[in-house]
Each structure stands twice: as structure tokens, then as C-alpha cells.
Simulated scan of single mutants.
Amino acid sequence: MTSHAANTIKVVSYYRVSSSSQGESGLGLEAQREYIQRAAQQNGWNIVGEFVDVASGKLAIEDRPEGAKALILCKQAKAQLAVAKLDRLSRSVHHIARLMEQTEFKVATMPHAKPFELHLFAALAEQERSFIASRTKEALAALQARADNGDPQSVEKIARRTAALEKGRTATNRAKASEAIQERVIHWQESVRDPIDLCIRKGGRTLQQVADCLNGKGITTSRGGEWSSIQVSRVMKNLELQF
């Protein structure tokens, strides 16, 4: 909690993770909490409540159990809603616009953004959802193209991922299985975006420093091991993160 100085803004912290497994493990939750706490310290916010939902971003916040409670507290305490990133509220422009009519809210990664700017970012977030879906298909197509051109690593990767599913599966189902695997890879990479971003914001200036930061937080690689500078470099490149 921040101090109750005269110029503080009362906020209700709201966090959302997308699945029960993420909710139980806390994946992404610690990063969201750290974003809001840092923004509160830097901007004089007084956190008067905290709510956590394990729910899909497709649902409007008022349709999520804890989200509805957070909105009620905002009204009762005359506080603003605070989230780590805009997509924790929704990637739907319609949902964001409707929420703007109900309450004021703060976004930790852009604490001084005005309503018009938030509406613009919501539109970009909605576009990003469509982009991720198309990027998954493009990544699969690129992998297949490299395999068709004789790249041994690509051939091996496709064979390894589909070998267990080959028997008794149609070509359509094999393609769906491969796409599902790629989607899981992208989903995992997105789950470590915030921790990596926070490590950079907290002073990480080299790949090894970011790796040490992630290991110090107990965040593991996709295979459950410790991070190396090479692994950090690969994931940062895929997520288009820079120092």
C-alpha cells in the first residue's frame, strides 16, 4: 500500500490470469502485481483493494466474479481501477469503451494515458489478437517450407512433434495437432513477456543479467530448467523485446 498523502489517488488493483493452471501457479500474477506496485509508488496511488480473476479475456470485466466486485469497490471507495496492462481488462474495444462509461481506470505501464489514448491502445490490442492467430499459421507454414527445402532441423522438429500423432490420424488432424503445439509455444512465450520486461525495467542491460533475474524469481524455461543468455536472446527476439 502507498501512503495516504493528500495528493494520492485511490485505486483498486485488478489482476487477471487466463487459466486455472496459471492461477494456481501464479504465472503472470507476480509480474502484474509488481507493475502496479511500482506505478503506485511512482505516481502516488493508494491501493485500497485487490482482486484476482482466473478468467478469459473474452469476458467483460463486469461478467467476471472478482472483476464485478472490483467495480463495486471502486464506486463505494470513489477509487479508480488499476491494471498492469490494458489486455488484463480486455482486448475488445467494445468492452474497454463500455468500462470507460462506468469508471475511471489506470494502466500501470502507461499511468498518464488519457481516455482517448487508452481507447486507441484497446483497438491495437484487439488487432494484436488477430495478428497472433495469423502469426501462428505463418510460423507453421515457414517451418514446413524449410522442411520442404531440406532443412534437417525443421524436418526433425516436425517429425518429433507429429510422430506420436501420426498413427491413425488424417492429414487434417495432423495439421491441427501441429498447430496446437505451435500455439502452446507462443502462449508460453507470451506468459514470460512481463517477467522479462520487468527484469529489463529493473536494470537488466545484458542477456545474462536478464537470465539471472528470471532465475532469481524462480521462473523456469519452457522445459522447467534455468535460463541462459542464449535462451533469453531467442525468446526476446521472438517477442520483439529490446533493451
Rank of each mutant, 00 (worst) to 15 (best):
P115H: 03
F116L: 09
F116S: 11
F116G: 08
F116Y: 12
E117A: 14
E117Y: 07
E117R: 09
L118Q: 11
L118Y: 04
L118M: 11
H119C: 07
H119W: 10
A122Y: 01
A122E: 01
A123W: 13
L124V: 14
L124D: 11
L124C: 06
A125Q: 06
A125R: 06
E126R: 11
E126N: 12
E126W: 07
E126Q: 13
E126S: 08
E126A: 09
Q127N: 07
E128N: 04
E128H: 05
E128A: 03
R129C: 04
S130T: 06
F131Y: 07
I132V: 13
I132Q: 09
A133T: 11
A133R: 14
A133L: 08
T136M: 06
K137L: 13
E138Q: 12
A139T: 08
A139F: 01
A139R: 10
L140F: 08
L140M: 13
L140A: 07
L140R: 12
A141D: 12
A141M: 10
A142L: 14
L143E: 11
L143K: 01
Q144R: 15
Q144P: 02
A145T: 06
A145F: 08
A145H: 10
R146E: 14
R146I: 09
A147K: 06
D151R: 13
D151C: 13
P152W: 15
E156F: 12
E156H: 15
E156M: 13
K157G: 02
K157M: 15
K157H: 13
K157N: 12
A159F: 10
A159S: 15
R160P: 02
R161L: 15
R161Q: 15
T162Y: 01
T162K: 02
A163F: 09
A163L: 15
L165R: 00
L165S: 06
L165Y: 09
E166H: 09
K167P: 03
G168R: 00
G168Q: 03
G168C: 02
R169T: 07
R169D: 13
T170E: 00
T170N: 00
T172V: 13
T172Q: 13
T172Y: 10
N173S: 14
R174I: 08
A175L: 13
A177Q: 11
S178D: 08
A180G: 09
A180C: 04
A180M: 10
I181W: 12
I181L: 11
I181N: 10
Q182V: 15
Q182C: 12
E183Q: 15
R184F: 05
R184I: 02
V185I: 15
I186Y: 02
H187K: 11
Q189T: 10
E190H: 08
V192M: 01
R193W: 12
D194A: 10
D194V: 06
D194T: 05
P195N: 04
C199T: 03
C199K: 00
I200F: 00
I200N: 01
I200Y: 00
I200D: 00
R201H: 05
R201A: 13
K202S: 09
K202G: 03
G203H: 06
G204R: 02
G204T: 07
G204S: 04
R205T: 11
T206R: 06
L207G: 01
L207I: 07
Q208H: 02
Q208T: 01
Q208W: 00
V210M: 05
A211P: 04
A211G: 03
D212I: 06
C213T: 05
C213H: 00
C213E: 07
C213F: 01
L214D: 02
N215P: 03
N215M: 01
G216R: 01
